[in-house]
Design a protein around this nucleic acid. Structure first.
Lengths: 205, 205
DNA sequence: CTCAATCGGACGGATATCGTCCGCTTGAGA
DNA sequence: TCTCAAGCGGACGATATCCGTCCGATTGAG
C-alpha cells in the first residue's frame, strides 16, 4: 500500500542535516547560496541534496516553511500575553530577529508570493491575521498610536535586516535591537508627528 | 602640453549618459547591474563604457562619489538649520531617501571601505563628522534622547532600504517615509525604553 | 574633405551554478 | 552473517552570466 516506504535512517538524518545547513547558510549569506555550499556545509555531496529534495527550490521552500511555522508559534504565544503592548512589541522583536537571522527571508517571502505554495499561503494568511490582531489589541489599550497600521508593524520589523545585510556587521552584533527599540518607542503614544500617506503595501511577512 | 586634449563633444555626452544610466540602474536593481545593462540603458555599446571608464569598477566609483558629494551638500545644508532637531531629522530623512533611491548604497559603502579611494575616504570622514555634529547639536537642545549615538542615527537611516529592496514594492511608494517618521519619533525624548548594549558599529554611511 | 577619435557589439575567456549520472558504500531485513 | 535495494559522493555536462577586448564602421571637428 505504502508506495514510499519509510526511508532509511541515514537518509532521514541527511534530510535534517541539509535543512539545518540551509538555515545556517541563509543566515549568514542570504538566499544566494549554491547547492554545493549547502551540501558541503552539511557534510554531504550535492547528489544527496538533489535526491532528498529534487530541487534546490524545494529545499528552500521546506526551510522557509519551517521558519514560517516558528513565526506562527511566536505569534500565538504573543497573542496570549496579558499585556497587549508587550505582546505586540515582543512579536516585533522576534520578527525582526527572524529577519536578522535569515537574511533574505523577506526576499523569499516576496519570491514565494509570486507562486505561493498552499502551505506557505496558509501561514502567510495566519501571520497577517495575527499581526492585525496584535495591532488592534495594542491600539485598544491606547499605547499604540492610532495612525499606525499592521502593515507598518511588519515593515518596521524589517529594519533589523539592513544592519546585518548591507554592512557585514559582525554576526554577533546586537545593534539591531537598539534600532527596533527606538522604533517601538516611536510606535507608542503620543506620536510627535502624524503619519501621512497610505500605509505601505506589503505581501508576506 | 595638454597630454589629454579635451575629448570630443559626443565622448563627453556619453560619459554623462553612462553615469546617469548607472545611477538609474543602481536605483532599481542595486549593484548587481551588468556593464551590458548599463550601456544599453544609456543607449550605447559596452565598448564605449569601457573606453570611457576603463573598468566597470571605475564607473561605479564615479557614481558613488557623486552620491557622496550630494550627501555632503545635504549635510552642510542641515547644519545651517536654526532648529537643531529639524536639521537632524531632515538629514536622516534625506539619507534614508538616498538609500531608498540607491539600492545597495550601503553595500557599496561597505565594499568601498575595504579599499577606500582617498576621495571616498575623505567624503566618508566628512559625513561621519557631520552626523556627529548634527547629533550633538540635537542632543544639546534636549529633543534628542541621550542614549542615542551618531551610529544609531546612521543605522536608522537605512531602515528605508528594505521597504524598497526586499519586497519589490512599487517604486512610487512613499511608505518608507512612514517608517522613518516613526523612527524619528522614537528618537525624541523621552525614550520609553532605555537602549542597552554597545552602539552599533558602522563603517561608512 | 580628411582623419584621428569614437562607437557598437560580436567574441574570447573565466567563473558560477544547476542538476544528472554512475560506480561505490551501507543500512537493515532475512 | 549475507544480500541487495536504497543511498551516497562528486565528477561532469549543460547553461548562464558577465567582464573586458578587438576591429571594422562611423563621425566630430579643424
Amino acid at each position: 500500500m505504502n508506495a514510499t516506504p519509510s526511508p532509511r535512517a541515514d537518509a532521514r538524518q541527511n534530510r535534517r542535516r541539509l535543512i539545518e545547513a540551509t538555515r545556517e547558510a541563509i543566515s549568514s549569506r542570504g538566499l544566494d547560496v549554491s547547492a554545493l555550499d549547502i551540501a558541503r556545509a552539511a557534510g554531504l555531496g550535492v547528489g544527496t541534496l538533489y535526491r532528498r529534495f529534487g530541487t534546490k527550490e524545494a529545499l528552500l521552500d521546506a526551510v522557509v516553511l519551517g521558519l514560517y511555522d516558528e513565526l506562527c508559534d511566536t505569534a500565538q504565544a504573543c497573542m496570549t500575553r496579558a499585556d497587549a503592548w508587550e505582546g505586540l512589541s515582543e512579536f516585533v522583536m522576534e520578527l525582526a530577529k527572524a529577519h536578522r537571522d535569515n537574511l533574505g527571508l523577506a526576499t523569499v517571502t516576496a519570491a514565494c508570493d509570486q507562486q505561493p505554495s498552499p502551505e506557505l499561503a496558509q501561514r502567510t494568511a495566519a501571520l497577517q491575521e495575527a499581526v492585525t490582531d496584535l495591532t488592534a489589541r495594542a491600539r485598544a489599550t491606547g499605547l499604540l498610536r492610532a495612525d499606525v497600521t499592521w502593515q507598518d508593524i511588519i515593515i518596521c520589523s524589517r529594519a533589523a535586516l539592513d544592519t546585518q545585510h548591507c554592512l557585514g556587521v559582525d554576526a554577533g552584533s546586537e545593534g539591531w535591537r537598539r534600532i527596533i527599540t527606538i522604533l517601538l518607542d516611536g510606535l507608542r503614544t503620543p506620536g510627535h508627528t502624524t503619519l501621512t500617506g497610505p500605509p505601505p503595501h506589503t505581501t508576506g511577512i
